[in-house]
């Protein structure tokens, strides 16, 4: 089976990399102070979960990113639909959207902290500014790409505006929206973690910042690994929903396993 072979290679690559890292660190080829080593990182993660000290932070980060993901997507899809279906409004708003999107989001973090405090809200706001534009542009594009013939056909068959939205525009834009969801998850995490990193009292970004403060590279790497696992899990979840909702599409070549 080809799928199995690919999996074995993937696993081998990971183990090889970890083994090399461990070996290089133990034999002093790389400085453990700067690079830590996999066994330490694994132990640290095990301790975090063992004592349960990581859970409150994990909870806060999860909450922030889910909220940012949800509201950013909701706003993005809604505005994307609206502007795509109302070209005159889109023409008016176009420069403003471009201008807003041109702001590097990181500089917003201190302002959001001022406005919304050190808690969850400021991180959600930061995440929303990132997620929103991804969802917005993809939805807009997706709606614009609806086949004109399919659209005319539906209209002649008696579809009213709400029907078109439900049966034509949204399903047609769905593949764009889903691909945007997967990018959005990453952005939601960035919003949450960067926000925490720059000023907060809880969350994985805070944990990483604390560890960095005392030159605890093991803590930094452990935080990164937990984040990574978390994003992968969410991505897989979205992938599942996507496969269900987009069952109508011809199977793409390759794919997962």
């Amino acid at each position: 089976m080809r799928g199995l072979r690919v999996r074995l290679w993937q696993l081998g690559l990971l183990l090889g990399f970890l083994a090399w890292w461990e070996w290089a660190s133990r034999t002093g080829r790389i400085d453990p102070f700067f690079f830590s080593k996999p066994s330490d990182i694994a132990l640290r993660i095990a301790r975090w979960f063992g004592t349960g000290e990581i859970y409150p932070h994990l909870y806060i980060t999860t909450l922030e990113m889910l909220l940012a993901f949800f509201f950013g997507t909701l706003l993005g899809v809604a505005l994307g639909l609206w502007l795509a279906l109302a070209p005159s409004v889109a023409a008016v708003l176009d420069p403003y959207i471009k201008a807003l999107n041109a702001i590097p989001r990181v500089v917003l973090a201190p302002i959001f902290t001022l406005w919304f405090g050190l808690g969850v809200l400021s991180k959600v706001a930061l995440g929303v500014t990132l997620v929103f534009f991804v969802a917005f542009f993809n939805t807009y594009q997706g709606v614009k790409e609806v086949s004109p013939v399919v659209l005319q056909n539906a209209r002649l068959l008696g579809a009213r505006r709400s029907h078109l939205l439900r049966h034509v525009y949204l399903p047609s834009a769905a593949s764009w929206i889903f691909s945007s969801l997967r990018t959005s998850i990453g952005f939601a995490v960035i919003g949450a973690v960067v926000g925490e990193y720059l000023g907060s009292a809880a969350g994985l970004g805070y944990v990483i910042a604390q560890a960095e403060g005392v030159f605890d590279t093991t803590g930094v790497f452990a935080g990164m690994v937990v984040l990574m696992a978390f994003v992968l899990a969410l991505d897989a979840l979205v992938g599942r929903v996507e496969r269900r909702l987009l069952a109508w599409r011809p199977r793409a070549e390759g794919g997962e396993g």
Binding site: S147, V149, V150, N153, L156, W248
Partner: peptide, 27 residues
């Protein structure tokens, strides 16, 4: 008017049955 277009105009994301049912749902 019912219009059978030169190009494919049925909805790719609906089954054959749902495509045919759709005009009635619109009504």
């Amino acid at each position: 008017a019912g219009y059978l277009f030169q190009q494919d105009a049925i909805l790719p994301w609906k089954t054959a049955l749902d495509n045919v049912a759709l005009p009635l749902v619109f009504r």
